[in-house]
């Protein structure tokens, strides 16, 4: 009795979707693969866009899509346990049904600005989720883009998500380097130790790249400062933001930063544009 066949269906009405698989990433992060009841992905989208997942009667929450738009079989979401909807999601089994609506918001400019450019991805913790969508999209269209550097940090090795991609898949791609770091030294970790912002400076990468940054607010803030210190201009940096959202379509009135709605005008912002907005995020 899904109502999706009705004409003029409102954008607030979700479609039914099935949890096809659950991959545990860390102690509190898992990646959910979601398909329509008939199989296949619920909708097309571009990297950076989000979707609203609902679990009646708990409610809805918005998540960035972590799979690549080139993936036709499913949508993936890497979700951290941090509220009632996410707690419930984590307790669900494969085959359970949820609601999904979207895609929402703008996207990273993969079809224009990023084309042919050298790219620098900077992610912290679960912040890799939206960037992974872009990275895998680029890997599937590798010749359209220049070099790819990925700086990814987490509190500890156990907190690094998408280990298959960061350890095995991405490092094997042409002109692609992955720079991992963890906040504190631990036994068995032979990689870099230190926070992402200082790692940016240590790496001494060329500053003619386009940088895409996502992570916890403090990492974004200090990461931007570090990028500027090594000579990046704000026009070269994109980030993606997260605020409380309910409708996802720019009407419910709570996710605005100044006159921009993160759900509609974002979540991707170029940093010089962000600078024009009030400091309230």
């Amino acid at each position: 009795m899904s109502c999706n066949c009705q004409k003029n269906v409102d954008s607030l009405i979700p479609q039914v979707a099935v949890i096809d698989s659950i991959r545990k990433e860390t102690a509190d992060v898992a990646t959910f693969r979601i398909i329509t009841p008939a199989g296949g992905k619920s909708f097309d989208f571009l990297p950076g866009q989000c979707a609203m997942i609902s679990i009646p009667p708990i409610g809805e929450a918005i998540f960035s899509i972590t799979s690549s738009p080139t993936e036709q079989r499913f949508l993936e979401f890497s979700i951290k346990k941090c509220g009632s909807v996410t707690e419930c999601l984590h307790s669900m089994e494969i085959g359970s049904e949820v609601g999904i609506r979207g895609p929402y918001g703008n996207h990273f400019p993969v079809n224009d600005v990023l084309r042919g450019r050298d790219l620098l991805f900077i992610a912290g913790g679960i912040g890799l989720a939206p960037l992974r969508s872009v990275i895998n999209y680029i890997m599937d269209n590798r010749r359209d883009y220049g070099t790819v550097d990925i700086i990814y940090g987490a509190r500890s090795p156990e907190d690094l998500v998408h280990q298959e991609d960061i350890m095995n898949f991405w490092p094997k791609q042409i002109n692609t380097k992955v720079h991992l770091t963890v906040d504190r030294a631990v036994d068995g970790w032979s990689g870099h130790v230190g926070f992402v912002p200082s790692y940016i400076k240590e790496l001494g990468l060329a500053n003619n790249k386009v940088a895409l940054v996502c992570g916890p607010p403090i990492m974004i803030k200090l990461g931007l400062q570090a990028l500027e210190q090594v000579g990046f201009k704000r026009e070269q940096i994109y980030t993606t933001l997260e605020l409380k959202m309910k409708c996802g379509v720019g009407k419910c009135g709570r996710c605005n930063i100044g006159d921009k709605y993160v759900c509609k005008d974002g979540p991707v912002f170029r940093c010089d544009e962000l600078q024009q907005l009030p400091d309230e995020y």
Binding site: M1, S2, C3, Q6, V9, D10, L12, I13, P14, Q15, V16, P37, P56, P57, G95, S96, E97, V98, G99
Partner: peptide, 16 residues
């Protein structure tokens, strides 16, 4: 109220 949901045999149904 703009949406009703029910679960029948583990299948989720939405109605606008």
């Amino acid at each position: 109220t703009y949406l009703k949901f029910r679960t029948v045999n583990k299948r989720l149904c939405f109605e606008s």
